[in-house]
């Protein structure tokens, strides 16, 4: 009994994912085919990369609401340098990533040195970057991108779609960072008790900066992947993406109070959201109802997890 309970509390959210998968497999046989599962993975990769990034920030005790707009801005930034024959592929990639990193640096500096609440800073950054994306692109989608660039969003390597490969790579690196490096350990400490972390000789501001830069940097990667997939730098892309990312993180058991959370949890959270989206599409549920059902399942999954966690 106790064993079962321990098991449940540790793997509760994984079990929730499996249950949802089983229900969907029964409801629509097509769900559990390799073809469809690859589609699901490809669909979740953008949200997945974002969610992993924001996991760092949330464990460090912060929040980042600017993700969705950073996706748009970095997508536009990369796309503007990705016209065929203009520059080598590395240029658009670097432009996108650097724009993201810059957003992270500004977020981090305002939060640490300016001592402004992360919620407000990143909310401001959210509208600023969105505006910047519109200004940069004149409000029009940036089209006509090179095939090499589009390959990042639509191509296959060894039969596996590139976005999925990137997502997996991000998962591995994030897992190693959080579990095996001093920086990762410090992120947990800063989120758990900033004062105690400081008294232990940790440079708290540097750790926070690191978390925000990782977060925005990964948002930039997501922005590039998305632009490449839709073969457009779309200034209106990524609206409300931060909410799906944060939802995935919380479903995965990361505490919004900071100090606790795992990459594995976030990945499961991302998959739950992805599977629900995909399943409801397959079942031809109207998009109005989809929103309601998705909300209920998200809260329900967390509810079951927390009940068992006690």
């Amino acid at each position: 009994m106790i064993l079962a309970k321990n098991y449940l509390s540790k793997y509760g959210i994984l079990i929730a994912l499996l249950v949802i998968c089983i229900i969907l497999s029964v409801a629509t046989p097509y769900f559990f085919t390799v073809q469809n599962l690859v589609i699901v993975l490809r669909q979740v990769s953008v949200n997945g990369i974002l969610a992993i990034g924001v996991t760092f920030v949330i464990i460090a005790g912060g929040i980042d609401l600017s993700l969705g707009s950073v996706v748009a801005l970095t997508g536009v930034a990369a796309a503007s340098f990705a016209h065929p024959g203009a520059y080598p592929l590395i240029v658009p990639l670097l432009m996108g990533l650097l724009t993201g990193v810059l957003a992270g640096v500004i977020n981090g500096l305002t939060i640490t040195l300016g001592k402004v609440a992360p919620f407000i800073v990143t909310l401001g950054m959210m509208t600023m970057t969105r505006g910047l994306a519109l200004v940069w692109s004149d409000g029009r989608p940036v089209t006509n991108l090179s095939p090499a660039f589009n390959f990042i969003g639509g191509g296959d390597l060894l039969y596996i779609p590139v976005p999925i490969l990137l997502f997996v790579l991000v998962i591995i690196v994030a897992y190693i960072l959080l579990n095996y490096t001093t920086a990762g350990r410090y992120i947990y400490a800063v989120g758990g008790n900033e004062q105690a972390a400081r008294a232990s000789g940790i440079r708290v501001n540097a750790v926070k900066m690191f978390a925000y830069i990782i977060c925005s940097g990964l948002a930039a990667l997501a922005g590039i992947v998305l632009a490449a997939r839709i073969t457009t730098g779309q200034p209106n892309a990524g609206v409300a993406y931060e909410l799906d990312a944060i939802a995935a993180v919380v479903i995965g058991g990361t505490s919004l109070l900071g100090g606790r959370g795992t990459v594995t949890g976030t990945v499961i959270g991302v998959l739950i959201i992805g599977v629900i989206n995909n399943g409801l599409d397959l079942l031809n549920v109207s998009s109005y109802y989809q929103q309601i059902i998705k909300g209920v399942i998200i809260i329900g999954a967390v509810l079951i997890d927390r009940k068992n966690g006690k």
Binding site: Y180, T181, T182, Y186, N193, A196, R198, G201, R260
Partner: peptide
């Protein structure tokens, strides 16, 4: 307030101020 990260484990708290002695190049030797 200043002594411990309560949400963290005994191990993590003990080594928090001295991670350098149990890590190589910032990788923790678990």
């Amino acid at each position: 307030e200043t002594g411990l990260v309560l949400s963290s484990t005994v191990r993590n708290n003990i080594t928090l101020g001295a991670l350098s002695i149990c890590s190589n190049n910032r990788f923790i030797d678990k």
